[in-house]
Design a binder for these strands. Structure first.
Lengths: 201, 201, 201, 201
DNA sequence: TATGAATGAGTTTTCATTCAT
DNA sequence: GATGAATGAAAACTCATTCAT
């Protein structure tokens, strides 16, 4: 990847984070990249392609990093910690904002939707795998399908990020993670109870 | 409110739902309302004001309706049902989409943010009250502050709506509500257990 | 028609004549009309629509005038004179240039072709009628179908105009009309001869 | 001529035929040639030069071929047949389209005009020679100057091609050539008659 | 209240062309 | 000879907004 192409990708990410999808223009991106707007079309064909390339890049980088973190995750307590680490990093870096802005924008630019879906799928799978890993062999495994929980968690991340865009002070996530950490051990107990319940049914 | 104003408000909501914040233009709204674009400026000053007026209206209507539903909500099981009813109605009517698009758009139009916050607050309060109502007197009351849970639930709704905009087929919420219904009774038990835990700490 | 709309139409015609299809731009037209380029889109939707509106107008004006001339045309000699009068007027006013440039441009803008065809048809019909009028009842009537000759004449006009665009000095038409005037009486004779020929076959 | 230059020339012709002058761009030509756009400037200086080189080439090829055909042309009937053969070949190969598009484009690019005139002249001369050859010694020789007729025929070819660009189905030429074949013998007779006429004047 | 016309700044995108390699 | 990157100008078109009526 040419240095200029890279700068355009970085600038596109930055612009999405700062100005949102509706505020992301070729001029804005090129300006931030210190490049000529025409280069966007030379390198990417159109703006949407650049935005998707940017999403690809940020996704690949994060996935690589988070796969490493998943390696070391074994227990539910670990998982809560992993979720919290990822949350912090993503929020600060604005990764989820890029995603939520592209989703919001996909109403206007219908072609965007399917492309974003493609790029969201690995994250749902990652989350599913994470859940399966720590619940495997425990009774939690049968309580709720990991994939459903995963989708719920992804939705939750997106929503929290929206709230954070709106009001960085009022972000509920930190406190919720505190509570989750506290309750994680109990979750194991609930699992057993739930299993008994089901057996009694 | 004159009929024209009303038509503009309705058209603004419809446009936000269909085309997203980035695709919402004066012409588009006026066209849908069968009105002259200049009327937007005559009646609302600018587009943003119209969008906020639209958010006000849809919020007021829903709040009135949902307050009534809350009246009849007494138990956790009722609450799960209430959550599910609201979710269905909101999703189908696109109420949450209006909100999430305005939040996404608030990155571009910075003045939008504070105004949206103001209009989001009643919903967090409503959710808080709902939780408090069904947990009052139970040990759940002390487990997690209702307001934190409420913010989490609002975030979850926003996120689910984003996913639904993206791919209406893959919406996770229905299945999650099923699981929640099933687990609601267990939640009561967890509450007691958690309380014991805390007493033991 | 608004004065501004009219000025845009006139400016579009003028621009097509002076700068050709490839040199016809929104700015150019608006500049000549002393109007804001955005008005083209306000009034006509896009440039192509304006060009077609211009073609409509110039066609309507000419058709009205030339119908009047046709009224007084009775003999072959009259017809040659009519052809010459129309040729002079069209060439000087650039009417045919508008047409030939739009035809040339229709290779680039494929949607243009069918629209131009529609607007060319009345001229072929006019020419056919003219020929039929002066040959009706004579043996020329059976010699060559009037419609074929008409299409040939339209083609000839277009070609002459192209040559005239290229080199106004070398235009062949004036001399050819002289020859035609001289030979017109002979044409009557040829007609009879041809008929005899056919009868002998 | 290097293979690349040749490919650029061929691609330029093809682009003119397919997309017209207004649709002919450096990228388009280079793309069709499988070459880098910069090569156009390396080899030809600018686009216009390439287009003229292309016109030169196609002209030279056709002229060589058509000179051979002229060798065998002796009578008026032969000439009508020659005209028809050339017409068919040119129309199918798009040779005349190249010419008419360049003429149409010369309104925009004023420098194009004189260059195209230069390259058109040999065709007028070729046509003049053709007419002179078959009329030499006959009374037709004095009827209309061959050069005037030649210009008229060239104009007609250009016009027919324009109509053919517009609507390949409605092309009038085939039928007109049929009529011309039929009437060619009569033309000889007209010639004599005309001569007598002139003598009587 | 309502409208049609108008505007200026902005949008995405394309273009011919240049240049370092 | 050939290439990929780059550029500045200009293209078509859109937008929020204003204003006279």
């Amino acid at each position: 990847m040419t240095p200029t192409k890279q700068r355009l990708v970085d600038a596109a990410l930055e612009t999405l984070k700062q100005d949102g999808y509706a505020g992301t223009t070729a001029r804005g991106i090129a300006g931030r990249a210190g490049a000529n707007p025409a280069l966007i079309y030379y390198h990417f064909g159109d703006i949407t392609n650049l935005l998707l390339a940017a999403l690809d890049e940020t996704s690949a980088r994060r996935m690589q990093r988070y796969e490493a973190l998943l390696e070391k995750t074994e227990t539910i307590e670990d998982l809560v910690q992993l979720a919290r680490d990822i949350y912090r990093e993503d929020l600060e870096a604005g990764h989820v904002t890029v995603l939520s802005e592209l989703i919001a924008g996909s109403l206007q630019h219908k072609a965007l939707g399917p492309e974003v879906i493609k790029r969201l799928r690995p994250w749902v799978e990652y989350t599913t795998r994470s859940i399966e890993k720590v619940t495997r062999g425990t009774s939690l495994e049968t309580l709720i399908p990991a994939k459903d929980v995963a989708l719920g968690i992804v939705a939750f991340y997106l929503g929290v990020d929206l709230l954070h865009q709106l009001d960085p002070e009022e972000s509920p996530a930190d406190r919720l993670f505190d509570h989750a950490s506290r309750l994680a051990p109990a979750l194991g107990f609930l699992a057993n109870f739930a299993t008994l319940e089901e057996e009694n049914t």
